[in-house]
Structures are given as structure tokens and as C-alpha cells.
């Protein structure tokens, strides 16, 4: 079952990567990043069944960082929306070459 969990983690991570790459709605991109973080959490929990409780402690930290990242990221999205009236990332291309 540990191998299956690692496979599940890999599949979720790849789906999340695809979402980040193809969607243009900033909130959906954010959601896909959360999906990737969760995929890594599954891998950590699976490995904690092999190497001890440390993996679960790491999941704890990942969740905290994800919460902080969601709060700051959504604040950034809100302040961008105030300027441009949209969350479509194609409109924010100042740094694009």
C-alpha cells in the first residue's frame, strides 16, 4: 500500500502541475499549487510508515506554510484585482519577455 500511496502522490502532483500550466485564472492556479502541496503531503505520510514519525511532523510544517501562503497569495490576488479588474494572468505581463 505504501507504493500505491507514492503512486497516488505522483499522480496528484502531475495533475496539479498540469493545472498550473494550462489555467489562466489566478485562483485556479493557486488551487492547483495547493493540490501539489497535498500530493507531497501524501508522499511524506507514506514514507513515515517506513522511516518513523518525522514524516508526519514535516506534513505539519507543510500545512502551516500552505496556510500562510494561501493568506498572502489571496491578498496579492485581491490587490491585483483592484488595479486590473481581472484575475486572468495573461493581463499581468510586465515581467514577460
Amino acid at each position: 500500500m505504501i507504493t500505491d500511496a507514492l503512486l497516488l502522490s505522483a499522480i496528484l502532483f502531475v495533475i496539479g502541475t498540469f493545472g498550473v500550466l494550462v489555467r489562466r485564472n489566478a485562483i485556479i492556479i493557486f488551487l492547483a499549487i495547493e493540490l501539489q502541496l497535498n500530493a507531497v503531503n501524501v508522499a511524506f505520510v507514506a514514507f513515515s510508515n517506513l522511516y518513523g514519525i518525522d514524516g508526519q511532523v514535516f506534513v505539519f510544517f507543510v500545512m502551516t506554510v500552505a496556510a500562510a501562503e494561501a493568506a498572502v497569495g489571496l491578498a496579492i490576488i485581491i490587490s491585483i484585482f483592484r488595479h486590473y479588474e481581472t484575475v486572468d494572468v495573461n493581463n499581468f505581463n510586465f515581467l514577460k519577455w
Binding site: A5, L31, S48, N49, A67
Partner: peptide, 29 residues
Amino acid sequence: IAATFVLLEAHFLAAIQIIVYAGAIMVLF
């Protein structure tokens, strides 16, 4: 994913996953 955590013997993380992710972060979104 929380259910798979339970099946992988990480009960506390399953509860935290529901409370923090599904409860707090998704409501924020």
C-alpha cells in the same frame, strides 16, 4: 486525501487536514 491519511495510520494529520485545509483554506478561497 484525509481518508487516505487515516488508512496510512496518520489520524491526527487527517483531522488537521479536514480542519485546516477543507475548513479554513478552502473557505478563504
